[in-house]
């Protein structure tokens, strides 16, 4: 449905040349929810804006529904954009129009008759669950409601593709979930292809079927969401996966931590389970086999695409030798281990 072929985007800032995108190739199949994740400044926003040519790529082509957008005249492009819906981080609703009239805008632009607009808009507001807010102005809506209006507006011209530019980044976690659910619903009901960019791995995990990771203007990894979570190949991918787990050392532990082992102190270890780790109850096996006690400080395990993965912070109480054997055992079973220090 969307084909991005060898797209480059170069910005000039005075004498400086900034390669915002280099050699991007992506193919997004009809009906998928495709996520592009990257940290800020990685080029993800430029990438999604290239798809409907809000940003014209310096080279390469963008093919949406079989039409190469880069080759169109500006009038043809305007008409083709009506087949591509887009929602934004800051909603971009017109403050001078009511909810109803905001959703009606794309239809007015296309010259649809008033009575038809009414039927269409009422249906869309029903779909996003905002029928009773029809005559309200956006200023009186919550962030989540504004994004629902924006989604209804984006769907008004029956697009084949929906672009989501950080659509949930300005929303709280609960609202984010409800918006993601709505996106999933329209993906299934309307068989809409969705391309979304985000910096939150939770969003990707929540609804995407496929994901690409972008860093410094290059796509570094892409594939099924489960595969990426289970077998991240690049450091960048691992960082994003870790960011969804986010385990930090509690402050009082940090202050009691030493770099060297002394008598009466025990190692604080970070264990990282990936798709490669042996799928067995490793923690209790280690405890039994090497006669050590394991105290789990915090742990965040998850299950995506048939794979268990996650991070764990744990103290290993036992003799120095036993602890080392235990860590070696875990290492053999493909658990990534990092001894953070020794806590007295």
């Amino acid at each position: 449905m969307i084909e991005i072929k060898e797209v480059n985007k170069v910005f000039y800032q005075g004498d400086r040349v900034i390669n915002a995108l280099s050699d991007i190739n992506l193919t997004i199949a009809q009906g998928t929810i495709f996520g592009v994740i990257g940290s800020s400044g990685a080029g993800k926003s430029t990438l999604i804006r290239c798809v409907n040519l809000l940003e014209r790529p310096s080279s390469g082509s963008i093919i949406v529904d079989g039409v190469d957008l880069t080759g169109l005249s500006s009038q043809e492009l305007t008409l083709n954009r009506r087949k591509i819906g887009m929602i934004f981080q800051h909603f971009n609703l017109l403050s001078s129009r009511t909810v109803f009239n905001n959703v009606a805008l794309p239809l007015e632009l296309a010259g649809m008759a008033k009575s038809e607009i009414k039927t269409k808009v009422d249906g869309l507001l029903e779909l996003v669950g905002l029928s009773e807010k029809s005559d309200t102005y956006p200023a009186n809506l919550s962030g989540g409601q504004k994004q629902r209006v924006a989604i209804a507006r984006a769907l008004a011209s029956d697009p084949k593709v929906l672009l989501c530019d950080e659509a949930t980044s300005a929303l709280d976690p609960a609202t984010t979930q409800s918006i993601l659910e709505l996106l999933r619903k329209i993906n299934q009901e309307l068989n809409l292809t969705i391309l979304l960019i985000t910096h939150e791995m939770a969003v990707v995990k929540g609804i995407c079927t496929e994901v690409a990771i972008i860093g410094a203007g290059k796509l570094v990894e892409q594939g099924q969401v489960g595969d990426i979570f289970a077998h991240p190949k690049t450091e960048l991918a691992r960082q994003f996966i870790r960011s969804t787990l986010d385990l930090s050392i509690p402050e009082d532990y940090r202050s009691r931590m030493q770099a060297q082992r002394s008598s009466g102190s025990y190692p604080l270890v970070r264990l990282e389970f990936t798709g490669a780790s042996v799928d067995a109850p490793l923690i209790s096996q280690v405890a039994r086999q090497f006669n050590i006690d394991i105290s789990i400080l915090s742990s965040n395990m998850d299950y995506v695409g048939g794979v268990k993965f996650g991070l764990m912070l744990a103290e290993f109480f036992g003799t120095e030798q036993a602890a080392e054997q235990a860590l070696a055992f875990l290492h053999e079973h493909k658990v990534e281990i990092e001894v953070l220090g020794y806590v007295a």
Partner: peptide, 29 residues
């Protein structure tokens, strides 16, 4: 008028003249 509004209008396929009459002027009213 926030530039995002003009961008949103462009993204939904508004012609320049429609952007002026339906977005810029009403929003700046």
């Amino acid at each position: 008028v926030p530039s995002g509004l003009v961008e949103a209008a462009q993204a939904m396929g508004a012609k320049p003249q429609q952007i002026i009459t339906k977005v810029l002027l009403p929003e700046a009213l």
